[in-house]
Computed example of a mutant assay.
Amino acid sequence: MSNNANHQGVIVRQAGPLALIQDTGRFGVSHLGVTQGGAADWISYRWANWLLGNAPDSAALEIVLGGNLTLEAEKEVTLALVGADLDARLDDAPLAPNACFQLRAGQRLVFRQPKTGLRAYLAFPGGLDAPEILGSRACTVREQMGGLLDDGKPLKTGDRLTWHGAGVASRALPSKAVLPVNTPGPLSLVLGAQASHFAGQSLFHTFNQRWSVDDRADRMGIRLTGTPLLSGPSGIVSEGIPLGAIQVPPDGQPIVLMNDRQTIGGYPRIGALTPSACARLAQCLPGTEVRLRPITATQAQMIHRRQLGVWD
């Protein structure tokens, strides 16, 4: 097991509010009612693994907010940190994200409070050890599945992290690496068939106002607040929900459904954010203002292929 006392690794000396083992998530199981899970900012997650020469789907640590999460090394290891700047400190020395670094035996790594962004990704050589459940090690709290002990729980004080890699290819981020936490501009949205249910004025408001990221946000969904959107039917026949789907409940305040979303839903959907836009939204702190822009499904596919191509 990943916290076997006979294996040296990294010990959690103080747990933060939400540190989860994540990978690319579970696919092909939504018909069982099992959600996708996986890294919310999948772009930063993939770059963290790339820095160490890991497989793209290697399990890593998703650290939300920081909250004084404290990790202590039992042996020397090279790690990679990408994504939000959570004011990380290595034995009280500032540690900038988006690079590899060495953690020596006895050293402590502390994540304090967000300076930029919300989620940081810490990659380990070869990927973290954790049980593989339905093809993934991703931790989904609501379903009590995955993670260090397959109980869906965040890391707690005393947990031991181990990994299955030895040597690493310590790299530097290339100039083509564009991280969601540093990407300005509107979030791309593909309109769906139910967009016709919304009044013309509401469609105008969708794309011509600044939405505020509400503090009612988690890995299931992120609520946006602004001028309410009005639709004809108050509900529809429940149907499958993709990543980034924007549901509009009766109060008119849209909810962007994220990695740990329910698998079906019955509120009208105005469309869905692209995967890259979801990664950017996952890095937005409450109170952040965002705008939406419409693009076609073909444009969305081209953008996604281009994003995947940066790792080739």
Score class of each variant (00 low, 15 high):
42 W>V: 13
42 W>H: 15
43 I>N: 08
43 I>W: 00
43 I>Q: 10
44 S>R: 08
45 Y>G: 10
45 Y>M: 09
46 R>F: 02
46 R>Y: 01
47 W>F: 09
48 A>S: 15
49 N>H: 03
49 N>S: 09
49 N>T: 10
50 W>H: 13
50 W>Q: 10
52 L>K: 07
52 L>A: 03
52 L>N: 05
54 N>V: 06
55 A>S: 14
55 A>G: 11
56 P>H: 10
56 P>A: 12
57 D>E: 15
57 D>T: 11
58 S>T: 09
58 S>L: 10
58 S>Q: 10
59 A>L: 07
59 A>M: 06
59 A>I: 04
59 A>K: 06
60 A>C: 14
60 A>D: 11
61 L>Q: 04
62 E>H: 02
62 E>M: 00
63 I>E: 01
63 I>W: 01
63 I>G: 11
64 V>C: 10
64 V>W: 11
64 V>L: 14
64 V>N: 13
65 L>W: 09
65 L>M: 14
66 G>F: 01
66 G>D: 04
66 G>Q: 00
67 G>D: 09
67 G>N: 08
69 L>D: 07
71 L>T: 04
71 L>R: 05
71 L>P: 13
74 E>C: 11
74 E>M: 14
76 E>R: 12
76 E>Y: 05
77 V>E: 00
77 V>K: 05
78 T>M: 14
78 T>N: 07
79 L>A: 02
79 L>D: 05
80 A>F: 00
81 L>P: 03
82 V>R: 08
82 V>K: 14
83 G>M: 02
83 G>E: 01
83 G>A: 03
84 A>E: 00
84 A>H: 11
85 D>V: 03
86 L>E: 12
87 D>E: 15
87 D>W: 09
87 D>P: 10
88 A>R: 03
88 A>P: 11
